[in-house]
């Protein structure tokens, strides 16, 4: 046994199975240095963290038990959030159809795709909450601002993915339908839409889900829905009511997720 081990080639001529990857190690070191530097820039100290943990324990203690007695106020806010999400999704998805089609580079000339893509980029790059504040300032408090903000956000997401899906279709079917002398709308309805419909429904349901989440938040900046109730409860240090609202929001979002999965399965 020991003789066999000795007969193996020594370490001097044996190749290492896993050679050290110095560039990668440098990257990790860079991350570590960055964390130290940035924590210093933002004034993070261990003290602040520890005092925060103490306060966090008090905070959690005050959240329990959640107070559900004002359920009517909560139900009102949740329903308004739901309405905002539904209207914004419907409007956003309907508007995404033409905009996405106009942004598809394999069907449209550059004259059309460039402005359509600019609209999509603009709608995409701002967080829905920022868009919501701007609408709140422009047209006043209430669900309308939230609806408009989420509609714009939906266009940014759905139209972008719709355009990308159209760009990936097979052009054979388009040619075949065109060869029958179909009009442009005929080509779109018979050759383009059937190829992308399944994916369109996929990201539309995803957007419905995401709008439901955001519709509970636009209220923080005055855009209507449960967010306003949540924010004012926070400002009144009414933490047991905050806990109740959070639980109901999470319940609604999870229900929405179940419905979205179920919708997707129906259309598979």
């Amino acid at each position: 046994m020991s003789a066999a081990v000795k007969s193996l080639p020594g370490p001097s001529i044996r190749a290492r199975a896993f050679r050290p990857n110095w560039p990668m190690r440098a990257v990790w070191l860079g991350f570590a240095l960055y964390v130290v530097y940035a924590s210093g820039r933002l004034n993070f100290t261990w003290d602040r963290f520890v005092t925060g943990l103490d306060r966090g324990a008090v905070f959690l203690g005050r959240m329990f038990p959640p107070e559900f007695t004002r359920w009517q106020l909560m139900a009102e806010g949740l329903l308004e959030s739901l309405q905002i999400a539904i209207i914004a999704s419907a409007a956003g998805i309907l508007l995404s159809l033409p905009i996405g089609l106009l942004a598809a580079r394999n069907l449209m000339p550059a004259v059309v795709t460039v402005p359509a893509r600019a609209i999509i980029a603009l709608a995409r790059s701002f967080h829905p909450i920022i868009v919501a504040i701007i609408f709140v300032k422009a047209i006043g408090f209430g669900p309308l601002a939230g609806i408009l903000a989420l509609t714009l956000g939906s266009i940014g997401f759905v139209a972008k993915l719709f355009a990308e899906a159209i760009e990936e279709i097979s052009l054979k079917q388009v040619e075949a339908v065109r060869a029958t002398g179909a009009s442009f709308m005929g080509v779109v309805i018979m050759a383009v839409l059937p190829q992308v419909l399944a994916r369109f429904i996929g990201f539309s349901t995803y957007q419905l889900d995401s709008n439901l989440r955001n519709s509970t938040m636009v209220g923080i900046v005055g855009g209507g829905g449960i967010g306003g109730t949540l924010f004012s409860a926070f400002q009144r240090f009414d933490y047991d009511f905050v806990a109740a609202i959070l639980i109901s929001i999470i319940a609604m979002i999870m229900l929405g997720e179940v419905i979205a999965t179920w919708l997707r399965r129906t259309f598979q």
Binding site: N43, F49, G52, M217, F231, I250
Partner: peptide
């Protein structure tokens, strides 16, 4: 649980815990 709570709500919670500032945001 982490995904179900919006980042603004997480921020509200951590502002209440750590006080206003970048620590709560991070």
């Amino acid at each position: 649980a982490s995904r179900s709570v919006n980042s603004l709500v997480w921020a509200l919670l951590f502002v209440a815990i750590f006080g206003p500032g970048a620590l709560a945001g991070t």
